[in-house]
Structures are given as structure tokens and as C-alpha cells.
Design a protein around this nucleic acid. Structure first.
Length: 212
DNA sequence: CACCAGGCAAGTA
DNA sequence: TACTTGCATGGT
């Protein structure tokens, strides 16, 4: 697993994810990017910033209809508005809206709490834990699954937890490593492993490790 | 025109 | 546990 990381790092260079100005913005982005191109999320976040609602209290204070219009470019805007509300409500109730306070809790506890929020599944929870709160949880997304399947490392139908364990049990629990690794997998996936084409001859790893 | 994007929940068997 | 469907905009 580390070998693949160094291969990707050498080829693509550091990705310095996640683009955001605050941990809360990362959380919002994590929800908005669910099954959605990041480009669309950028516009939605820009709208939220212009409206001055990129903090828990302000976001909770706007009406659902206004919120929906602000995030419309990110798609699924009705369900996502409700999901953002659920997330923000949790941060306000449990931590008084203070993300810094939240970040002091142990990761295993936060993960359990995040997963209990309606609209936050495993990938979104881990994205928040890793990129917003600096907790060492590896993020498994569709690209990760696709790339590992093509590498022959997994069969493809394994549950999320199993794939996550594969990384976390073979890598040191290093936040920066996890951040960079996931970002690199997404970069590889976006550029060379789109759709279900069985071969990707353009793939830089094709010759080196047989990314077919 | 079809297909995809940094998922999740609810329903069905 | 393992599929299937709805959610929706914007880019290729």
C-alpha cells in the first residue's frame, strides 16, 4: 500500500487537499460533494460565502428555502439543505457551535456521532474527520474502490469498513499521509480511470503496477 | 443524445 | 446481506 502511495506521489506530486478556509467549510463541502462534481460544489460554497453563512450559527439561521437556493448548483439541493441542517444542528447542540471544541474529542467518538446524523454516511464522516478535524481515518470513495479492483487487490463488492481497514492496518496512522493518499487516488481516478473501461493505457501506473 | 460526478437513505427480497 | 431507486445540477 505504501508503494502505491509513493508511486502516485512521484507522478502527481503533493495535492494539498482539502481546498477550504476553515474546518467548517470542509464539513459543508463534504456534504455538498456527495455524488457531485467538485466544480459544482465550488459555486455553492461561493454562494454561501457571499451570503456570509459559512459558520454554524449563520447557516442555521437562514431559512430552508434560502439555503436551498444558495446550494442549488451542487445538485440534490433539497436533501443536501436538510443534511446541512442536521449537521449544523448537531454542532450547535453538542458543541455550542464551536468546531475547535469538537475537534478535541476522540476520533472514535466523533465518528459514531457523525454516523448518527441523518445524511452523513461513512465516507462523509471520514472526510470530515480527516480533512476538517485532523483525525486519522482513511477515506474510501468510489475511485478508491475502482482503482483497487483494477489492481486486483480487492474483488470490488467488499464493504466500506473492509477496504478502510486494508489501508489503516497497512499504513501508519498519519493524518498527512491519509490526506495525501486519498487525494492522489482521486486524482488518478479522475484523470485515468473514468467509467468502467477495462483498460486505461494512458494510466501512468499501467506499466509499473498493471493498472488495467 | 447519453453518461458521469470526491453518497446516502429507504424500500424490497 | 445485497440489490434498486430517488435525489438534481452542470460538464463532457
Amino acid at each position: 500500500m505504501l508503494h502505491l502511495f509513493y508511486l502516485l506521489l512521484k507522478h502527481f506530486g503533493p495535492q494539498h487537499w482539502w481546498p477550504a478556509q476553515s474546518p467548517f467549510e470542509v464539513m459543508v463541502g463534504a456534504v455538498l460533494t456527495q455524488n457531485t462534481a467538485w466544480k459544482n460544489v465550488e459555486q455553492a460554497i461561493a454562494n454561501l460565502r457571499e451570503a456570509g453563512v459559512l459558520d454554524p450559527r449563520a447557516l442555521f439561521s437562514v431559512s430552508s428555502q434560502v439555503l436551498e437556493e444558495l446550494i442549488r448548483p451542487a445538485g440534490f439541493y433539497r436533501v443536501k439543505a436538510a443534511r446541512l441542517r442536521s449537521l449544523v444542528e448537531y454542532i450547535l447542540d453538542r458543541y455550542g457551535g464551536e468546531v475547535e471544541l469538537m475537534a478535541r474529542e476522540p476520533g472514535w467518538l466523533l465518528r459514531k456521532e457523525l454516523l448518527s446524523i441523518h445524511g452523513i454516511g461513512e465516507e462523509t464522516a471520514d472526510s470530515i474527520l480527516l480533512y476538517a478535524l485532523d483525525k486519522p481515518f482513511f477515506v474510501v470513495d468510489t475511485y478508491t474502490r475502482r482503482i483497487l479492483t483494477r489492481q486486483g487487490v480487492i474483488k470490488g463488492r467488499e464493504p466500506y469498513s473492509e477496504i478502510q481497514r486494508l489501508f489503516m492496518e497497512s499504513l501508519p496512522a498519519d493524518v498527512e499521509l491519509y490526506k495525501e493518499y486519498h487525494a492522489l487516488l482521486v486524482e488518478l481516478g479522475k484523470r485515468y480511470c473514468k467509467t468502467r473501461s477495462p483498460l486505461c493505457l494512458e494510466c501512468p501506473l499501467y506499466l509499473e503496477v498493471g493498472c488495467g
